[in-house]
């Protein structure tokens, strides 16, 4: 049984989002036919909400809700899955200059996994840092579909992933209710907990999936000579 999870989303706990979790889940329920997502992972900016309990909402909507974090490192933004007390004691998640290599290695040693997100994005993505600095070691996967990507960013991310042999995930990076679930990751196995998710990201079979609607570009106006 496969599982489709949106691995990157921000609720109103992030300073730049106004999306309540309940509204996200309601939206996914309404849009189930076009965004068949089984669950979402809240990756709030520079924090981990250890005590948040979403079980009542999970039961009400039948959608899995897991917790992770998005941190800022000297190689760009990264998602952290499987966050523990040991990790938040070891690192200040609010630090916007976390040392990426040490962070990746230490989080792995403590049982979690770090996945660089939107690596093709200027300034905050891995790709730009690789242009000037040596590549990081022990990167397992990167996010290649990001719902907030501008033109060319996902393509750069895919190129990076292929060149370095990274595995690939997708996430909406939603900050608005109606954007949740636009990109996601399909796991071959069933994922029902954060432990399952970390195990699958490290060793399982998965692929990014893209539910964004395609719009034909508006054609430029053509001047017509009137006789």
């Amino acid at each position: 049984m496969s599982t489709v999870l949106d691995l990157h989303s921000h609720s109103e706990a992030s300073e730049d989002s106004r999306a309540p979790l309940e509204a996200y889940l309601n939206w996914l329920k309404l849009r189930r036919s076009e965004r068949p997502v089984d669950g979402i992972v809240l990756t709030e900016h520079r924090q981990f909400n250890k005590n948040a309990d979403y079980r009542a909402l999970e039961d009400r909507f039948g959608i899995l809700v897991l917790k992770a974090s998005e941190v800022e490192t000297d190689y760009g933004h990264m998602l952290v899955f499987g966050v523990t007390d040991e990790m938040t004691r070891r690192f200040d998640f609010a630090d916007v200059h976390l040392p990426a290599q040490l962070f990746i290695d230490e989080i792995a040693r403590m049982g979690g996994i770090v996945v660089p997100c939107h690596p093709g994005r200027p300034h905050v993505g891995l790709f730009e840092h690789y242009a000037n600095r040596p590549p990081l070691e022990n990167v397992v996967a990167v996010e290649v579909y990001n719902g907030g990507s501008r033109k060319g960013e996902d393509e750069r991310s895919l190129e990076l992933a292929r060149r370095f042999g990274y595995r690939q995930i997708g996430g909406s990076d939603s900050h608005l209710v109606s954007l949740i679930g636009l990109c996601a990751t399909r796991f071959e196995a069933e994922v029902r907990s954060i432990e399952d998710l970390v195990n699958e990201l490290k060793r399982g079979a998965y692929e990014p999936v893209d539910f964004r609607p395609r719009r034909k570009p508006v054609q430029p106006a053509v001047a017509v000579e009137v006789k």
């Binding site: 501008r150 033109k151 608005l176 954007l179 964004r212 719009r215 570009p217 508006v218």
Partner: peptide, 17 residues
């Protein structure tokens, strides 16, 4: 009623959300 609103360009990139 709460609503999401945005401005897109011709290539469906969201410029303002």
């Amino acid at each position: 009623a709460d609503m999401d609103i945005w401005i897109e360009n011709e290539e469906a990139e969201r410029l303002v959300i």
